[in-house]
Nucleic acid binder design. Sequence first.
DNA 1: CAATTAGTTAAGTTAATACTTAACTATCAC
DNA 2: GTGATAGTTAAGTATTAACTTAACTAATTG
Lengths: 108, 108
Amino acid sequence: MFQALADPSRRGMIERLSHGPASVSELAAPLAMSLPAVVQHLQLLEASGLVKTQKIGRVRSCVLDATAMSQAERWIHQRRTGWERRLDRLGDYLNQTRDDDQIKGDKS
Amino acid sequence: MFQALADPSRRGMIERLSHGPASVSELAAPLAMSLPAVVQHLQLLEASGLVKTQKIGRVRSCVLDATAMSQAERWIHQRRTGWERRLDRLGDYLNQTRDDDQIKGDKS
DNA sequence: CAATTAGTTAAGTTAATACTTAACTATCAC
DNA sequence: GTGATAGTTAAGTATTAACTTAACTAATTG
C-alpha cells in the first residue's frame, strides 16, 4: 500500500480521485505518459486496495477506497503517537525529577 | 517520504523507533541483511525527514521525527476525508430526492 | 458497416532499488 | 598500544519498477 503511494504519478491519480470518480482517460489526461503506463499504475493502485474500478460499456470508472486509505493513515498515526507518548512520559519524568530537586533544595 | 515508507525493512525500523531511540546495530539486529544495507536504508529514512540521527562517540543514535510522520499522515487524511465528504453529500442528495419523491406522492 | 473511441495485452528497454563483499576509520576497553 | 566494537565508504550485481511502442479487442457513433 505504501509502495503504491510512493510514486508521484499515482499520488496524482489519488489526488484526482479524492475530488470524485474518474475514467482511465481522465486520470491519464494530466500525466505526461502513454495510456498503457497509466493503466499499469492503475493496476497497482487497485492491487493495493486504494482504488476500486468497474467497467461499464467501454469506460472503466475508478473510485477511491476510503477504508484502505484510513488503514495507511492509521499505520502512520499509531507509530507517531506511540513515539509521542514516550516523549511525553520523558517530559513528565524530567519535570518530576526537577521538582524533586527543588524539594530537596538543590540549586537549579 | 512515501518512498521511504514503501520498503518493509524501513517500516520495520520505524516500528522499532516508535518504541524509542535506537543505535544502528539495534536497528539492524532483527533484519536479515548486512550492516551497510541497513545504513543505506537509514540514509533514505533520514533524507526523507522521518528519522533524525546524531553520532555520539562511535554510536549513532536514531529517533523518529513526529513532525514528518504527521505530514505523511495528513496527506492521506486530507485525500480520504475530501472523498468521504463527497460521498456524504451524495448520500444527502439521494435522501433529499427520495424525500421529495415521497412528498410528491411517488410510490417507493 | 466503417470509423472512432476507450481501454487492454504483450514484449522489450532503461533506470532505480536493494542488496552484496571488501577495505577502511574512528572510538573505546584493557 | 593492541584488539575489539560501531559504523562508514566504495564498487559491483541482480532484481524490480517505470516506462515505451505496436498490435489488438470491444463498445459507440455517423
